[in-house]
Design a protein around this nucleic acid. Sequence first.
DNA 1: TTGTAGGCGTTATCAA
DNA 2: TTGATAACGCCTACAA
Lengths: 333, 333
Amino acid sequence: MTATIIDIAKKAGVSVSTVSRVLNNKPDVSKETQERIRATIKDLDYSPNKVARNLVLKRSNVIGFIASDITNASFPELARGVVVKAKEYGYSVMFFDAHKDSRVEKEAIGLLRSKQVDGIILSFNEANRDELLKLRDENFPVVQIYRKSSESMISTIAIDNVANGYLGTKYLLDAGHTRIGHITTGDLTQSGYERKLGYLKALTEANIDIDENLIVEGVSSVEAGRECMERLLELKSRPTALFASHDVLAIGAYDAILDRGLSIPGDISVVGHDNIEIAKMIRPRLTTIDTFKYILGQASVDLLIEEMAVESHQCKELVYPGELVVRDSVRIL
Amino acid sequence: MTATIIDIAKKAGVSVSTVSRVLNNKPDVSKETQERIRATIKDLDYSPNKVARNLVLKRSNVIGFIASDITNASFPELARGVVVKAKEYGYSVMFFDAHKDSRVEKEAIGLLRSKQVDGIILSFNEANRDELLKLRDENFPVVQIYRKSSESMISTIAIDNVANGYLGTKYLLDAGHTRIGHITTGDLTQSGYERKLGYLKALTEANIDIDENLIVEGVSSVEAGRECMERLLELKSRPTALFASHDVLAIGAYDAILDRGLSIPGDISVVGHDNIEIAKMIRPRLTTIDTFKYILGQASVDLLIEEMAVESHQCKELVYPGELVVRDSVRIL
DNA sequence: TTGTAGGCGTTATCAA
DNA sequence: TTGATAACGCCTACAA
């Protein structure tokens, strides 16, 4: 039986309201009683029951965080940003993994709400537009990460995929490459789609004809990257450079290239996207685009806090540009 | 204003207890009223306030999970195991990152408890023995992951580090290597210390004299691995093989070896430990020891649930053996 | 089969 | 400066 506010009130010879006052640092309580109460609190090792407090306050000081896939390489940094920032604001985070399953995601939303979380951060979600609209209608604080959604009217922290796709491709172009392959998750994911747009834009701008054969599509995995690259290598006129829409794809591409006895960047230059931890560990170290995941995680809770403070549902959209991290996988011609 | 049990009681023309009964699938409620109530629940999109429920039930159906470092490469799989298994039991998980700071860890424990979590899983913690003892004394369910603690009397899920160290070294021995270096976190971490014990045991068993010069110590990071390997490479009689106590160390060692123009496994064979995701992506693919992190995460929840069910604090200790994953980084002599 | 009422541990309003 | 007391939303004897 852990102590309650009543226990300490009795022991200190005061009423519960007085105890509650010192607990919440309210004014109007004499120095002496204050000290006496503080002492007995320490004495009984008492700590207020947050559940009871939440019930009356109607707020829990916890925010929900739903990752669409916890094994995503970008997750750890992102999560750390969320947790760190939440703590700064005095919030704890309750955590769910949706396994990329939108049904699970929906369940998580319901559970989180029934647990009275004060707001929800969704990352990487692929669907559930209806759920989101419902939340919005109820004026419930939510922010999405990584998914622009001007149409869905939910506050969002996103990265500028088009600009990043452009950035990566442009770098290759500037290095003198003209035959640049692109491995992409394509229309399978919004991010892939957008990065491809950037890739196309850079080529078009450089007056290079788009060769559809140079664009191969696969899911976001090492294996897919490998397969895609193999297809590229079989082309009669193979590319001298590659822009992969995700680092994992680039890593798969490495395998295919190196297994053919080709060299990176000697024969083929590679630029990735995401700057996952592995990028700087593989050889040659991968030139890629950093997306500041830790910062994004933090920004998402900033935005959520803002959302919670404001009366009516706003709909801010913060788009973060990426930054090219030059390492050793591109050959300057 | 979201609906409460009273709202639906009124609307359905029954008392709150009856509603509560159907909410909790209790018997003794007629088919008709049951249906009527279910209907209005659906109608008002009602979902019980878990905070209120927790207050009376004195249980929250959430378990706390404190990672000592969320950026640890083993974390994602472990966390997934925890989250998945917890969900199976109907539990949610509230999540903290201690940044390896035992003060933060202590805070997290306090916070989690004040939030009335039903149990706590601690992973990778380095210190806070006092906190743990306090929890044990209060009969509060806790399980530690990765840290054997026979002395601390807390239930634990651990991996058999000594056996694993032996396993990795023995494999190198069986491959014909006799001059085997060891990069270790040494006495800095319990896991490193134990794996080193395994390394020593294997050598001793093979009647190979221990050469202290072959054992270098550093923190668990790629950079440290690199530096340690450099020292090994400067030896007049350099090793032909290496057992690294952590994959990240092995990856750093790769850098040092390859930068010298040496080949893996041609000149130097490498065995790691952990089987982090990167291990199969680097080249040559790293032979290492898998520790079944996903399973461990799940097992920790199983154990915690067991702990919660039992009256008195038990103190089970489950030790999981690792498994060698043979890939391409070892040369058979 | 259903309803009444007390209690879970806090906070907050209103008196004293 | 302090103390009763009514919420908060739910569950659970106990009664009816």
